[in-house]
């Protein structure tokens, strides 16, 4: 028996070794060289990535960033009709609709996501959301799976996240978990991001500009963490760009804590008004959240 079993085992191990790193190397980039460098080439596709909303009103920013990640993961090809990107399954808890509003399809289109690609699964509780997400992650034809539970819940623990990331690894479909009104907890995610809205670059006549986010890499399995970048999402190029300047000169922004036009966005973390260490410390993070809501 050992005569036949051992070579078979060796073969399967060799296959695993061949496949494992190859899959891990299957990455997608956010389109920003600094970010990709920190991530060691990009975000791995078959993995779980967590996106935390920092304050109460930042829910839309976190959701928007997750959509942008999903679009980066499954980009629309340049020549239409060559390959249609896979559908995106969006598992959402009912409570999110009540707290943060329901998904507005034209708004999805405004961010570059074709609403026809989206399949929404409404689950009554966090467990249902996880179950729908895990089920969807088994289907390798999808472009991405978004998992959006609400609040602190004991259902999302190390075991549950490990299960999700294994499922994502098997199918090669990125799993993006959007956490709203929750504090970071131990999980098996490959990366963890904290997102908050950033004042946009104003257009003529003081109109709000492109969606801008401050994204903080709280955790990174493949490298160092704790960096913050200020980015804006360009829907037409389906790409993140560095946010050019802090604000228009000559416009008064009394409540803004930062000095006008001081930080170059090319120097990540140079003058973070949000110290990266604060984000890893739950107590401090809580304080900042209150200040933010304040």
């Amino acid at each position: 028996m050992t005569h036949t079993a051992l070579p078979a085992l060796r073969r399967s191990l060799a296959r695993l070794e061949r496949e494992g790193p190859a899959r891990a190397r299957d990455v997608f980039s956010l389109g920003l060289p600094e970010v990709d460098q920190t991530l060691g080439g990009g975000l791995s596709r078959g993995a779980l990535h967590e996106v935390y909303a920092l304050g109460g009103p930042d829910v839309a920013a976190a959701t928007g960033f997750a959509i942008a990640m999903a679009l980066r993961a499954a980009p629309v090809p340049a020549t239409p009709g060559l390959a249609i990107p896979g559908p995106i399954v969006w598992a959402r808890q009912d409570y999110v609709d009540m707290e943060a509003g329901r998904l507005h399809a034209p708004g999805l289109a405004e961010l570059g996501l074709d609403p026809d690609r989206v399949i929404v699964v409404q689950a009554p509780d966090a467990l249902g959301v996880l179950r729908a997400g895990a089920e969807a992650l088994r289907c390798s034809a999808l472009g991405a799976v978004l998992i959006e539970p609400w609040g602190e819940t004991s259902a999302i623990d190390l075991v549950a996240t490990r299960r999700l990331s294994l499922a994502a690894g098997d199918s090669g479909v990125p799993a993006l978990m959007v956490r709203l009104a929750a504090n970071p907890k131990p999980s098996a995610a490959a990366t963890r991001w904290a997102v908050r809205s950033l004042p946009s670059q104003a257009l003529e006549a003081g109109a709000p500009g492109l969606p801008a986010f401050a994204i903080t890499l709280l955790r990174n399995r493949a490298g160092s963490a704790g960096h913050e970048w200020r980015v804006e999402w360009n829907r037409d190029e389906r790409c993140f760009r560095n946010r050019q300047r802090e604000q228009e000169p000559g416009r008064a922004r009394p409540a803004l804590p930062r000095p006008v036009g001081a930080v170059s966005a090319n120097r990540p973390g140079a003058r973070p008004d949000w110290p990266a260490s604060a984000l890893t410390d739950p107590a401090l993070a809580e304080q900042t959240r209150w200040r933010d809501a304040g």
Partner: peptide
């Protein structure tokens, strides 16, 4: 779906109450 204006910011919200 109505195609958004190129290089305009989103004119419709992502989430609707």
């Amino acid at each position: 779906w109505p195609a958004p204006e190129p290089y305009e910011p989103p004119l419709r919200p992502l989430q609707l109450f």
